[in-house]
């Protein structure tokens, strides 16, 4: 099913934001829409977007390549992105990340064995006063988790694991 067939209302709403002769502005919002289901933009979705905006699939791919929040490959169902930038690191973020990885038996950048969560390290997320903190990217968009501890984080992962099983 094409993007327009799947989300007709949303596609229309997005296109209405920009002047008709400047449709290309819709490429980023459409990519977010395309990523909603699989967590990444499929080839077919890239072609859809290109057709909608009268640009080439290569143009779309170059946008995906430039921005860190767009993906063209499948990863874990959730991306847990811990901020280890300077202000957070001054409040223990590096140590938090290390302990979290030890507990999950993964390294930064790797995905847990059950494909549930990929642990990543990211730059400042504008939550520096509430470190340690991370954002969770999943099917419901991006969620911030602030003032975290390793224990609270492990509980959160456990809850995600359970909710996934219920759905299936």
């Amino acid at each position: 099913m094409s993007l327009t067939e799947k989300y007709p209302q949303e596609v229309k709403k997005i296109l209405a934001k920009y002047p008709p002769e400047q449709k290309r502005s819709a490429v980023m919002p459409l990519l977010y829409l395309a990523q909603r289901q699989e967590g990444y933009a499929t080839r077919a979705a890239m072609q859809d977007i290109a057709d909608l905006l009268a640009i080439t699939p290569t143009d779309v791919a170059s946008i995906i390549g430039f921005y860190t929040l767009f993906h063209d490959e499948k990863e874990g169902r959730y991306r847990m992105q811990v901020c280890t930038d300077l202000p957070c690191a001054l409040r223990g973020a590096d140590q938090f990340l290390q302990e979290l990885c030890t507990n999950l038996q993964v390294q930064v950048g790797q995905t847990s064995e059950d494909d549930l969560v990929t642990i990543e390290e990211v730059k400042c997320l504008a939550g520096c006063d509430k470190a340690p903190m991370f954002q969770l990217q999943g099917e419901n968009g991006i969620e911030y988790h602030e003032n975290m501890t390793v224990d609270k984080t492990l509980e959160l992962i456990e809850a995600l694991r359970k909710s996934g099983k219920e759905v299936k």
Partner: peptide
């Protein structure tokens, strides 16, 4: 865009 490390006021 508020992305300067240490800035969290606009949010």
């Amino acid at each position: 865009d508020e992305s300067e490390p240490g800035t969290f006021k606009d949010r």
